[in-house]
């Protein structure tokens, strides 16, 4: 079964959807959309360094994404507003990554794959990494859901309840780095943030509580990845952007439906 590239691609898409969608809810609730983007863009630098030092791409991306997160945490609240800071860091990381890649002539061919994903080229090994990473993220969210939620709601409320908001923030950052590392192959560095944010935003109008929102977001993400994959094959379009396009169409439908419901 795993010999079929389409089966592998579908499973890869579902694996990423399972982890990215619920984590994406926290990204949306905490207004970390830009932060997600910066972490994802840093992935290109991670890829370049991993190839240069001949370590696994997964490890390279994880490390650079975490370093990016640490830098943001360190510099935030200083002289620049958060969005300015993230704008500087996200694009700088991307630019340095692209420059670094140009020093590695033998990987230049794969650049488009890293930027926009190459889900059809997912191998058994990749699939294993994707599902292992997704399992870690889902497990983390499952075990600490209530704590993460409390810390997201209000740091002082969390403190009073014996929850350390900084610890929870750190764990979310680690989860984000893992999702970036496993989603790189599926949608590419430039579009990862969309897989975090669009399913969560699509789910919001139809959820009354956080758990429902996360579950609906997973559903949306799975429809987007599997549907996008099929559409890309049908219309012979690039898969990563097609997946995101399908997610965006679902978002438009959800928002329209919500607006209609309010108007009635």
């Amino acid at each position: 079964m795993l010999d079929d590239f389409l089966v592998r691609a579908t499973l890869a898409g579902i694996g990423v959807a399972l982890a990215a969608a619920p984590l994406g809810c926290f990204v949306v609730w905490r207004r970390m959309a830009y932060f997600g983007d910066a972490t994802a863009h840093a992935a290109i630098l991670g890829v370049a360094l991993a190839l240069a030092f001949q370590v696994s791409v997964f490890a390279g991306v994880m490390i650079v994404s975490l370093l990016m997160a640490a830098t943001v945490a360190l510099l935030s609240g200083r002289s620049f507003a958060m969005d300015t800071l993230l704008g500087v860091l996200a694009h700088s990381a991307l630019a340095f990554g692209l420059v670094a890649m140009s020093f590695l002539p033998n990987v230049r061919m794969d650049l488009m794959g890293y930027l926009f994903g190459d889900i059809l080229a997912v191998g058994r090994q990749d699939l294993l990494v994707i599902w292992a990473g997704a399992a870690v993220v889902v497990g983390l969210l499952w075990l600490r859901w209530s704590r993460l939620l409390t810390a997201t709601l209000n740091p002082d409320l969390a403190f009073a309840g014996g929850v350390h908001p900084r610890t929870e923030q750190f764990l979310l950052t680690v989860g984000l780095a893992i999702v970036v590392a496993v989603a790189l192959k599926v949608v590419g560095a430039l579009l990862i943030a969309s897989l975090l944010i669009i399913p969560a935003a699509t789910a919001r109008p139809f959820a009354r509580d956080p758990e429902t929102m996360a579950a609906l977001a997973v559903l949306v993400a799975i429809i987007a990845t599997t549907g996008g994959l099929q559409a890309a094959l049908m219309f012979d379009t690039p898969t990563g952007p097609t997946i995101v396009a399908v997610a965006a169409i679902l978002f438009a439908m959800s928002t329209t439906a919500a607006a209609c419901r309010r108007a009635l």
Partner: peptide, 8 residues
Amino acid sequence: IDPTLPLT
């Protein structure tokens, strides 16, 4: 409470 966070 952020409007994106549904909470009963």
